[in-house]
Amino acid sequence: MECLFGLVGKDFAITVSDATSIQSIVVMKHTEDKSRNLNKHIIMLYAGEPGDTVNFAEYIQRNVRFYEIKNGIELSPQAAAKFTRRQVAESLRSRQPYSVNLLIAGYDVKTEASQLYWIDYLGSLIEIPFAAHGYGAYYVTSVLDRYYYPQISLDEAKVLIKKCIDELKTRFFINLSNFKIKVSNKDGIQEIVL
């Protein structure tokens, strides 16, 4: 029932995750942050089996950091995404696979472009201009298909994100009351409110 989505614009990537933490039939929290920053420019959103998610996300976060300390270079969003994919794919055929769906978004300092990667729990990786995970994907992708265009500005992207959230609030039968929105651009990652 969790919902993650994001899109890439002219010189930024924007991500949205619902902030609801559910256990069984009880909403435990409305301010859960389902994301980790992998470095100064890369955001990773995660959803899936509780327990697997945070553990896996932090494993990736720390390994990306470790790589950067060891080699003294910042990983590009593409490199981080491909590394993550491989970890998921290897876990898939292990005794206890991680059940985590991910979105990796970020600004690549070298190519000066933003990217968004979609990874599912099987380890399939695609790079797309906008992406979503969970049941919310059925609502959000329709809205984005209609209104998204390449090179969209941040202000217009915010309006579009608002449209997506409004759609979820009116048509999705789960009450996702709160969302965490993050933007990554050349200056780094900021959490924003619409």
């Binding site: 994919r85 491989r86 380890g123 399939s124 990786l125 695609i126």
Partner: peptide, 11 residues
């Protein structure tokens, strides 16, 4: 076939 395996195997 299965996308994850296409990617793993191609690599």
């Amino acid at each position: 076939g299965l996308a994850t395996d296409i990617q793993t195997l191609s690599e």
